[in-house]
């Protein structure tokens, strides 16, 4: 297969991508997972995790009603408890951006919209451009685009790079998250390569998954992406954000992910400016654990709203 030649800029990016030893990565993760997060640190971690959630609904059966209810939950996670943060953003299809924007009002909660023919990305660039423009025109604060995995796997890195750069150009100040759908990629080497490529093309955030494919945000994949963010920061001083999405449904996993961020990137990333969880069911588990920490009682899902 013949591909357009790779630009000097991209080829130097690809050349700098190190290999990832999967077993070594798993050992690093096991070490982080063996840490014990207790007491005040646990409460702080749970609150932090809540504040980093992109509360998400991305279904064919989504309606304005569903979106409105989710937006209310985003602002009122559990009114029975004091001092809780709101989530960072809601994440919806472009057709619900306007509705979400309206529902969230002046809460400060961002509206993120998936785009570029989410989730497969199998459409012409013209459609992806219009898709993105539509979301932005409707008020999206953030765009979660998908990359063309087929092109990436066939080695057409320039295509993927150019596409990201073009969408970023459309976004302007709107924050761009680039979804790799790592469950469709193969090795961690590829995860690292696509991370470097996306960061080089202008991604503000890199994101693991659409939530439609398993496995999604696994620890090795997230660790690998964090490594790319760290190396980019060491080289340029620029902070790129990270968004694991899909598969992180328990507090324990979320806290372990945050600890991984702390150890791999540093505490500067422990804010929703640079870290997000793409999740729908995580919020309630965090809330239940939070209540458990406060009351000492194990909690029941019955007492936490399911929007």
């Amino acid at each position: 297969m013949n591909h357009p030649s790779i630009s000097t800029e991209l080829s130097s990016l690809l050349l700098s991508s190190p290999s990832i030893d999967q077993i070594g990565a798993l050992e690093r993760i096991a070490r982080i997972q063996s840490r014990s997060i207790k007491g005040a640190a646990k409460l702080q971690g749970l609150r932090m995790a809540l504040s980093m959630i992109d509360l998400t609904t991305l279904e064919g059966k989504d309606t304005t009603g569903k979106v409105r209810q989710m937006c209310y939950k985003a602002q009122h996670l559990h009114d029975q408890a004091d001092g809780l943060p709101t989530v960072a953003a809601v994440c919806v299809y472009p057709s619900f951006v306007a509705e979400a924007k309206k529902a969230l009002g002046t809460s400060g909660i961002k509206v993120a919209s998936v785009s570029t023919a989410f989730p497969s990305g199998q459409a012409s660039f013209e459609i992806k451009r219009l898709d993105t423009q539509f979301a932005i025109d409707n008020g999206a604060d953030e765009i979660d685009m998908v990359i063309s995995r087929g092109r990436f796997l066939s080695g057409d890195y320039q295509f993927v790079y150019d596409e990201i750069a073009a969408i970023k150009a459309i976004c302007g100040p709107v924050r761009l998250k680039v979804i790799f759908e790592t469950g469709e990629l193969d090795t961690l080497d590829q995860v690292r390569r696509v991370s470097d490529l996306a960061i080089g093309a202008g991604a503000d955030f890199i994101k693991t998954s659409t939530g439609k494919i398993q496995p999604a945000a696994t620890f090795p994949v997230v660790l690998t992406m964090l490594g790319a963010i760290k190396d980019h920061f060491d080289k340029t001083g620029q902070m790129v954000g990270m968004k694991p999405a899909g598969g992180i449904s328990s507090s324990k996993l979320a806290l372990q992910h945050l600890l991984m961020v702390k150890e791999v990137l540093g505490e500067a990333w422990l804010t929703n400016e640079y870290y997000r969880f793409g999740a729908s069911s995580l919020a309630n588990d965090l809330l239940m654990q939070y209540q458990k920490q406060l009351t000492g009682r194990y909690q029941s899902a019955t007492y936490f709203s399911i929007d």
Partner: peptide
């Protein structure tokens, strides 16, 4: 939200 120190509590 601004960043804060996130130090682990002792876990004896």
């Amino acid at each position: 939200m601004s960043t804060a120190n996130w130090d682990l509590d002792p876990s004896m």
